[in-house]
């Protein structure tokens, strides 16, 4: 692991009028680390994720990102062109609903290849080759490369979305409930896949989820949010096995034990 954090978040707040979206969030994210943000519905998880990924402008606070050239840049002071470039090369964003992150009317191969073409790859054969490799990596058979995502099952769409995001080998991936809306067996397979990819590629990831099992499987560290505030953060196993805050204790004890 490198000696510098990939992302330095300090005092990030987002207010919707007088309502709090998230308030005074600070943390560092290290290269190769997976951070889970958990909490109940409406606790500000997604607001936080949207602010971090610059899809939403925060009210106060700043986020420093460690660029590939070694410099730290304030995400909110970058030009829009730089931000959008960062988003399609160095970052990935996996939506809960694959339809939001995919182009449903173009083939799977083009979905994976879009980022390559966006950064200037103009060789059809190479793009297709890379797309094929990535489909294989996310366990979609090669003969589906020319099918549109709407012909895919929910689990396949989600895997395709992941392939589409990872094709430019990003360093940071944001995931918003990546397993939401999938049935349990598909969830397990997807989690397995994501965990493998994160390990292989040395990605950092911020995963928003309300599912503590997902956090347990994927993340190294977790943050518990309630009403827009981070009430507890620490190593995942520590937080889940030995929750300190009453709310976290409640959350952990409310998991059904089968």
């Amino acid at each position: 692991m490198s000696a510098n954090p990939l992302l330095k978040v300090s005092d990030l707040s987002k207010f919707y009028g007088s309502r709090i979206g998230c308030s005074a969030v600070s943390f560092d994210l290290w290269p190769g680390e997976v951070l889970a943000v958990v909490g109940e519905s409406g606790s500000g998880k997604t607001t936080l994720l949207n602010c971090l990924s610059t899809r939403l402008m925060p009210s106060t606070g700043c986020v420093q990102y460690h660029m590939r050239d070694g410099e730290y840049r304030d995400l909110y002071r970058m030009s829009e062109a730089e931000r959008r470039f960062l988003m399609r090369t160095d970052w990935g964003f996996v939506h809960q609903n694959p339809a939001d992150g995919l182009r449903m009317t173009v083939s799977a191969g083009a979905n994976v290849g879009e980022r390559l073409m966006a950064v200037g790859d103009r060789h059809y054969g190479r793009i297709r080759q890379t797309a094929t490799e990535w489909l294989e990596r996310v366990e979609i058979s090669q003969d589906r490369i020319d099918d549109q995502p709407r012909a895919f099952s929910g689990g396949m769409r989600q895997r395709l979305q992941i392939a589409r995001n990872l094709v430019t080998s990003p360093r940071l991936v944001f995931m918003d409930e990546p397993t939401g809306g999938l049935d349990v067996s598909v969830q397990a397979r997807l989690l397995d896949l994501v965990r493998g990819l994160v390990n292989d590629l040395g990605l950092s990831a911020i995963v928003v989820t309300h599912d503590l099992a997902v956090a347990r499987l994927l993340s190294h560290r977790m943050m518990v949010m309630k009403d827009g505030h981070v009430i507890e953060q620490g190593l995942t196993d520590r937080v889940l096995d030995d929750p300190r805050e009453p709310y976290t204790q409640l959350l952990v004890s409310s998991i059904l034990q089968v």
Binding site: V106, A110, E114, M117, V119, R128
Partner: peptide, 22 residues
């Protein structure tokens, strides 16, 4: 408009890619 302003034309090649794939 934003794509024109920022010269983000990767999408145009997605269309051509689709042509070749089909």
């Amino acid at each position: 408009r934003k794509m024109h302003a920022l010269e983000e034309y990767g999408l145009m090649h997605v269309k051509l890619y689709e042509d070749i794939a089909r």
